[in-house]
Design a protein around this nucleic acid. Structure first.
Lengths: 158, 158
DNA sequence: TCCTTTCAGTTGCGATATGCAACCTAATAG
DNA sequence: CTATTAGGTTGCATATCGCAACTGAAAGGA
């Protein structure tokens, strides 16, 4: 098997591809950002993001299909519909925050508003970092890509 | 100012929008995933990702424009060109890993191959989490969105 | 009751973006 | 000096996006 074929197999089953099929379309991340910031209704998303209504309709539908948002009628006003994050959706917070911090550092050049703070200490959250199993911060030089089977063999040999 | 207008202002200057303009297009993340895994040449990206050649050309060009990849001629073979991550590109690793871990957990349902391990302990890296300034893991219930100016006022009042 | 506004979409249509296959040029290999 | 490889570009078909206008059901107000 050529190096290229090896890599193709390896990448095909990567979680990134799977994730992108669900949240990789244009606007999906921005809609989720809105949801994390408390937006709930169609018109709120539309006016805040400035997204076309048909696209918004399509994206909300898809996020609901994939179980990232839940769509419920508003009991108080039967015209209204509320979109809320599910656990699966809330679990995207690390992705959103990593992306945001990167954008702040490398693109916009300054911290955004509002800030996500620890409710008790009132201090902004820490930058997202890659850490070892025992909590040390790792840089790319401290890491290595290893085939899962090779890793098992290493463990058994030890 | 209405609640909607407040939020619009607030979101306009969020780093996520800025980041997405650079890496939010289709294929960009997958190309970066490839780069993190050691792909360097046009044909490698093309055969591994199965992306159309014109789109690949366009995306590589854009990533280079934005300073995420560096494009160098290969001194050993003047037909070849190498694309490599810059520091700005390498700093996207937390984004890629968060996305990958989410995809593994919620979409593909199983860990991907290969694994990123701590080079010395040989243990897989930890899941990406949101942490307080002093390193405690935080859930959404432990956090709050706060306007930066309000936060400053809080700090001064204390 | 009737009229107006709000909410959450849908529809039609032109502008973009994507994907495929074929082609191209320079450099290398044999 | 011919064939192959690397890294693209070009043309063309299809899919997606974005805007503006429209719809239908539900409230709100006089």
């Amino acid at each position: 098997m050529s190096r290229a074929e090896q890599l193709r197999e390896v990448f095909a089953e990567c979680g990134i591809g799977a994730a992108l099929e669900v949240v990789g379309e244009r606007w999906s991340f921005l809609i989720l950002r809105g949801a994390f910031n408390g937006l709930r209704h169609f018109e709120e998303f539309q006016t805040n993001l400035g997204i076309a209504r048909n696209i918004l309709s399509n994206r909300l539908g898809r996020l609901v299909e994939h179980g990232i948002l839940r769509r419920d009628p508003d009991p108080a006003d039967r015209r209204k519909v509320t979109y809320r994050l599910t656990e699966k959706g809330r679990d995207l917070l690390p992705v959103l925050l990593s992306l945001r911090q990167w954008g702040e550092r490398w693109i916009s050049g300054h911290p955004s508003n509002p800030v996500l703070v620890d409710r008790y200490t009132r201090k902004p959250i820490a930058p997202m970092t890659v850490q070892s199993a025992d909590g040390r911060e790792l840089t790319l030089r401290d890491m290595e890509w290893v085939d899962r089977d090779d890793l098992d063999r290493e463990a058994n040999a030890a």
